[in-house]
Write a protein that binds this DNA or RNA. Structure first.
Length: 464
DNA sequence: CTAGGGTTAG
């Protein structure tokens, strides 16, 4: 090895740096190769080595690999520390497995490790992202009540989670509490609130926040610029969206994949497909991999421009590779087909689609109503609700109004009752699924840990 | 070595 020439031999710290760098910049497999090499060199990996691997697998959404790494760690006699558990918990939450994540949290306690601020921040974020905003709020309140020190990041997590769940009032409340705390909102807080305003169609308020952020001298990064440009683009204010991105590029920020996607979206909406294609080349030259946003933006843009063949061709190329499950792109194509007058083809595609979501159904229902096919529309609407999904309120209204106005007042009333029943059933099922009871236990138990009590093993045995 | 913000489809 090169080190030998210097008379210095690499030790575990050297290798750990190498493993972590490989995880971040090359890939988990390359990192694993380093681990094999260090074992050959007679150096034993330690908990830090494995934590790096775990984080790498988690970043790549490779759940089974994370579990393998964890198991391998145990087999080697390396006992996982709090960081290992935090990473694993985060991994499960990201994969939409809150119950597994909860089990990890329990393991932290069972292993006599005290959850730290990161554990609770990860927990709060994971709860929000998996539809447990109420529990997240409860946890936050309890943490506060017990005098736990909160961090700015805790507020940011909650504000974002509540906004994304559409709970604007609660988000505002937390924002107010942040104002009363010892923290000053940072750029992340501002971007979060900005995004929230745009989501709730409070466009002017969003721009006000934007100016306030500027006047307070916060440095704008790609996150802030793309949020604002994306909002402008959605509103159809393409000139302003373009200007925003120009300012960003002029300020010397190197565009990343999201910035390029934002630009691509603007070009497609402007109908500038040549510029879009040039941008695509530029991205590829700079070594960027197009992600499913890029492809969706292109497919949707082509559909809206009336180029259904182009969109279909693009999808076919991509579906042979990694994008066979790009639901958003298929939804775009479905809607585009219908709007272009190919109702039969659209229906065929709809039936072929194995995965559907509320976008799929809402778009179909809207288009069917325009065609005055209210029977089919109401059938689809009900099956959407029965599958546990939401449907756009406007789609629901269109069907009911359509049935009623075509002279079937009784049927319209019947449909309304059916919709109500389907919704009640859906909510019941989701309450059962959420298993609120375990979460309550978890939260009460978390309090004891955070308050500064020693681990009470008797309590663990009693409760679990 | 772990946690937070940005881009797509009705």
């Amino acid at each position: 090895m090169a080190f030998k020439g210097l008379g210095v031999l690499p030790d575990v710290v050297t290798y750990n740096a190498l493993v972590d760098a490989n995880c971040r910049f090359v890939g988990i497999d390359a990192a694993y190769a380093v681990v094999r090499r260090m074992q050959v060199a007679g150096i034993k990996p330690n908990v830090i080595t494995y934590n790096s691997l775990l984080a790498g697998a988690s970043r790549d959404f490779r759940l089974s690999l994370s579990l393998d790494i964890f198991e391998e760690m145990l087999e080697l006699g390396i006992s996982p520390d709090l960081w290992s558990f935090n990473t694993l918990m985060h991994c499960f939450f990201r994969l939409g497995k809150p119950d597994e994540a909860y089990r990890v949290f329990r393991d932290i306690i069972l292993n006599d490790l005290r959850p730290d601020k990161t554990s609770f921040n990860t927990l709060l974020n994971g709860l929000c992202r998996n539809g447990y905003t109420d529990n997240a709020l409860m946890l936050y309140r309890n943490l506060k009540r017990h005098g736990c020190e909160l961090e700015l990041i805790t507020y940011n997590i909650l504000i974002d989670g509540l906004c994304k769940a559409g709970r604007l009032k609660a988000a505002r409340w937390i924002l107010k509490e942040l104002g009363d705390s010892c923290y000053i909102p940072n750029a992340i807080t501002y971007t979060t609130v900005l995004k929230c305003c745009f989501r709730c169609r409070q466009f002017e308020e969003g721009l006000e926040v934007f100016w306030e952020m500027k006047s307070k001298g916060y440095t704008f990064d790609a996150f802030a610029y793309c949020t604002v440009a994306g909002a402008f683009a959605k509103k159809g204010r393409l000139k302003e969206a373009n200007d925003c991105m120009e300012v960003m590029l002029d300020s010397g920020i190197t565009p990343d994949i999201v910035s390029y996607n934002t630009l691509m979206n603007i070009y497609c909406k402007e109908g500038k497909f040549e510029a879009a294609s040039e941008l695509l080349n530029k991205m590829e030259n700079e070594g960027f991999e197009c992600d499913h946003y890029t492809h969706t933006i292109l497919v949707d843009g082509l559909c809206k421009a009336g180029n259904l063949e182009g969109a279909q061709r693009h999808l076919q190329i991509k579906s042979s590779t990694v994008f066979s499950t790009n639901l958003a792109a298929y939804n775009s194509l479905l809607d585009g087909m219908y709007k272009a007058g190919h109702a039969k083809h659209a229906m065929k595609l709809f039936k072929l689609m194995k995965i559907k979501d509320e976008f799929t159904y809402s778009s179909m229902v809207h288009n069917l109503c325009k065609e005055r096919k209210f029977r089919t529309a109401s059938r689809l609407l009900l099956s959407c609700l029965k599958n546990g999904m939401n449907i756009l309120k406007s789609a629901e209204r269109a069907v009911i109004r359509g049935v009623r106005d075509s002279g079937f007042r009784k049927d319209a009333r019947k449909l309304q009752t059916k919709i109500r029943m389907a919704k009640i059933l859906r909510n019941l099922i989701s309450t059962l699924d959420s298993g609120n009871l375990t979460w309550m236990q978890l939260i009460d138990f978390g309090m004891l840990q955070c308050k500064g009590f020693q681990n009470p093993p008797f309590l663990i045995k009693k409760n679990y």
